[in-house]
Write a protein that binds this DNA or RNA. Structure first.
Length: 272
DNA sequence: AGCGGAACCTGTCGGC
DNA sequence: TGCCGACAGGTTCCGC
């Protein structure tokens, strides 16, 4: 479900609302969400103060005390919801953190693809260590990108979904970015010139920034910490628009499959 | 090394 | 109404 703008929105809201609070107790309703044993997890988070919140790629990192991190990945349908402690559990609540002052932080996940774990050393976490450039990383330049992509012949759409290259992009924003740059999602990525890669970087940043301002995209599952929706869905140009007219040329938007996932594009505007 | 397909799990929607 | 397949914002593993 959530891509960078949605994850960052959640991180921003959590930062405002749970920093300096203390986890009193933890209930694990679905052990499969955790990497290790539930009892160990609960022991590790109990009585810990929340000291920091940050994002790396699509990972949410919650600092506990001075030397532990709770690492969460929401995958498709994971959510963090902050509620008063008297709210009844929902069927898809998977892990509940009881906070001081009568609140609870709920990890809710319909499909149970999401996961959490506690680590002491972030650099020892394989997933985080493998994350590629953040979209605003100064090292993400047309030249550096060109160098990295020289030997890759996969379709540009699939390469942009690779978190070890650029971290944070997902199916929605990749479709939007390629549409804005008029790049065919099927184009082998090594055929893109340095100049076009520059455009890709620029549009990536612009679209993500706009989505961030609007608190992300809510189509089906994504909800914010207070269960409000994002608003960027009303700005989408191609994602989910198959059969509708392209706003640039009037041609109908198409849907194709790439690596078993839907790609939306205008065949006329995105010819190469 | 790079690539694509299957798998993970649950719910919803559209067609017959 | 009921069943069945397709589809969903993601990642990892496996074999080629």
């Amino acid at each position: 479900m959530p891509e960078l703008p949605e994850v960052q929105t959640i991180v921003n809201e959590l930062a405002q609302r749970i920093i300096d609070k203390r986890i009193e107790h933890c209930d694990v309703l679905r052990a499969g969400i955790l990497k290790g044993p539930s009892r160990l997890f609960c022991y590790q988070v109990a009585e810990q103060q929340i000291t920091a919140i940050r994002r790396i790629g699509k990972y949410i990192l919650i600092g506990l005390g001075q030397q532990k991190w709770l690492i969460t990945h929401l995958r498709m349908t994971g959510k963090f919801i902050l509620q008063t402690a008297d709210v009844k559990n929902h069927i898809h609540d998977r892990v509940i953190f009881k906070l001081n002052r009568g609140e609870k932080l709920v990890f809710n996940d319909v499909r149970c693809f999401g996961h959490m774990e506690i680590v002491e050393d972030l650099s020892a976490h394989k997933g985080i260590q493998q994350q590629g450039w953040d979209p605003w990383d100064k090292e993400l330049t047309p030249l550096n990108l060109k160098r990295k992509l020289q030997n890759r012949k996969s379709a540009v759409k699939n390469v942009l979904l690779d978190q070890t290259l650029i971290s944070g992009l997902g199916n929605i924003y990749v479709c939007e970015i390629l549409y804005k740059e008029k790049i065919n999602p099927l184009l082998p990525v090594n055929l893109l010139s340095k100049k076009r890669l520059g455009g890709l970087i620029k549009s990536t940043r612009e679209i993500l920034e706009l989505a961030l301002v609007h608190n992300g995209t809510s189509i089906s599952d994504y909800k914010r910490v207070d269960e409000k929706s994002g608003e960027f869905q009303s700005f989408l140009q191609v994602y989910g628009k198959s059969g509708e007219a392209c706003k640039i040329c009037g041609n109908l938007i198409s849907r194709i499959k790439q690596n078993q996932r839907s790609t939306f594009l205008c065949l006329k505007c995105q010819k190469n």
